[in-house]
């Protein structure tokens, strides 16, 4: 191949949008809204796994909550025909993530697993990613958080403790994914098995509303779950191609 040909091939390669299709894994989560009871176990599990700081009442009053996964609640109707719908909201790991393009220092990007990764050490704290995120799932460290001793002994050594001025968000428990990949490699396997890795929220969910896995594998539980006709994306109209798929809540016909 001549130099020009090489150049042309490379050019075409680099001009191909969204080549995350070719990633090693495409980690995906489905959340069945028909099962979610809004209990909040996922929230606490996430806090425990990912060293999410305690914010305190005064800071919460100033609107500085810090929960990588949160339960949103939406009321419908008025008393007595009133309904409450829960929806867990976490980083959607969008394939066309608005947050990634806006970071001037590439502190957030798409990694080879199709995850939306956040590099804490690289972050300079412009907070523009949080503005660009339509799901509002990016959280900022407004100051150095403290773990009064001995609460600090609980901190997970696999996850870094973020300093002030750094943006953070759900990672799909990337430390667990890393570990599973290492185990697979040690066992001489090419790929992580389905169900071998689960983020803390999925693991703890008592109604089994959440399923996590690789959608590249058509046999995986999550692919099956995505096959459900109830599958949809939240805020589909903003076209972010999320990796979190929700299954529609089922509304029973209650004739009263």
């Amino acid at each position: 191949m001549s130099f020009m040909d090489t150049l042309r091939t490379r050019w075409q390669e680099y001009r191909k949008p969204g080549y995350y299709d070719e990633f090693d894994y495409a980690w995906t989560m489905t959340i069945d809204l028909d099962r979610c009871t809004g209990c909040g176990a996922c929230v606490t599990a996430c806090q425990a796994e990912n060293n999410i700081p305690l914010v305190g009442e005064t800071e919460l009053a100033r609107g500085r909550e810090m929960q990588w996964i949160r339960i949103e609640r939406y009321w419908e109707g008025e008393y007595p025909n009133v309904k409450l719908n829960f929806i867990p909201m976490l980083c959607q790991h969008c394939d066309a993530a608005p947050c990634e393009t806006v970071c001037p220092v590439s502190a957030t990007y798409h990694n080879q697993d199709g995850l939306n990764a956040q590099v804490y050490n690289r972050c300079i704290g412009t907070r523009s990613c949080a503005v660009y995120c339509p799901y509002e799932v990016r959280y900022f460290n407004y100051y150095d958080h403290e773990w009064p001793s001995p609460l600090d002994q609980q901190l997970n050594p696999d996850v870094s403790v973020r300093e002030k001025g750094v943006m953070e968000k759900c990672t799909f428990c990337i430390q667990r994914i890393r570990q599973a990949k290492d185990t697979a490699k040690d066992d001489g396997r090419r790929r992580v098995l389905d169900g071998e890795v689960q983020p803390a929220c999925v693991q703890t969910c008592a109604t089994e509303a959440m399923v996590f896995g690789d959608r590249n594998d058509p046999q995986s539980q999550v692919s099956q779950s995505m096959n459900d006709p109830r599958a949809y994306h939240v805020l589909e109209e903003v076209n972010t191609a999320p990796s979190v798929v929700y299954l529609k809540k089922v509304e029973a016909n209650v004739s009263t």
Binding site: G63, R64, G125, R127, Y139, F140, N141, Y142, Y143, K164
Partner: peptide
Amino acid sequence: QYGIGAAGMNHPTVW
């Protein structure tokens, strides 16, 4: 010294 928390910004109004 304190962090951006000295300002009134919060979630979701980060600017």
